[in-house]
Design a binder for these strands. Structure first.
Length: 267
DNA sequence: ATGGTGGCACCGCCA
């Protein structure tokens, strides 16, 4: 059986409660099948579930008081939901896996790493390796899988506004490129880059601390939509929607969207 | 020049 086109979006909201005025209208206007969110920064008991349901979306989430937190809003009810990696520390507020009729989704908030000399940077590199094992354990490169989210890696010079200056940042350094490449080598394609080969200046993150960063083009592409090859072959397009970054009280990230055609049943 | 802003916590930590 076939279905109509399938659209998925990813958005690091930097607090879901502080971004509802952006997220809910965006959902109503854009009607994606799935919206993956990161850095929700809210305990589950306080997650604004009702607002999503009133907009016609199911929503699943896992988060703590202050840091991290992930959520997936979807038209269809997600099945086989699980949180976190398989081994400890599972970081259940950084990974959600779920399944829909035509596709599986893994929503990710990969550790940032703080600094190359910080133990958190080794933790980040290990996280990529653990994630590769996790993906290999639960999926096959032949099936329809989307891995998306804030991966805290800008892979190529065109993914940052000043590659010379930024080289050595925890999101833009050879060790992290290697970890990211090894993950993708399992069988994941950068769908956004597929549709914009060699095109610089397409960013989904603009640091709050840089004045007028977006207007000055001082961004990064650290948010990604990766899919298995068969699914990537059906992708119709991908884009970054900058409007949420222009809104009142924006997140420092904005929304990335990808669209796919005629998905087959995954089971 | 070693800042800047923003979120949530609580009087600092993380991005």
């Amino acid at each position: 059986m076939l279905m109509k086109t399938f659209r998925i979006a990813t958005y690091n909201v930097n607090s879901i409660r502080s971004r509802l005025h952006i997220v809910i209208p965006w959902l109503r206007e854009n009607q994606p099948d799935v919206l993956c969110m990161q850095e929700t920064k809210v305990e589950d008991e306080k997650f604004p579930r009702g607002e999503f349901e009133e907009a016609g979306y199911h929503v699943i989430f896992k988060g703590g008081k202050q840091y991290n937190g992930v959520a997936v809003a979807s038209r269809e009810e997600p099945k086989e939901v699980s949180w976190g990696l398989d081994d400890d520390p599972a970081d259940s507020d950084r990974l959600i896996r779920c399944k829909f009729s035509h596709v599986s989704v893994v929503n990710l908030y990969i550790p940032q790493g703080r600094g190359r000399d910080d133990p958190q940077f080794q933790y980040k590199l290990q996280w990529f390796e653990r994630l590769r094992g996790y993906i290999a354990r639960h999926f096959s490169p032949d099936e329809s899988l989307i891995c998306c989210g804030d991966m805290n890696v800008a892979r190529d010079p065109i993914d940052v506004h000043d590659p010379k200056k930024l080289l050595g940042h925890v999101d833009f350094t050879p060790e992290v490129w290697e970890a990211f490449d090894h993950l993708k080598s399992w069988g994941l394609v950068d769908v956004f880059r597929k549709h914009h080969p060699d095109k610089p200046g397409l960013y989904a993150f603009f640091d709050y601390r840089v004045p007028n960063a977006m207007d000055r083009g001082l961004g990064w592409r650290v948010d990604h939509i990766l899919t298995t090859r068969p699914l990537a072959d059906t992708s119709l397009g991908a884009f970054i929607d900058l409007e949420p970054r222009r809104a009142e009280k924006p997140s420092d990230h904005t929304v990335m969207v990808a669209e796919f055609a005629a998905l087959h049943d995954s089971l």
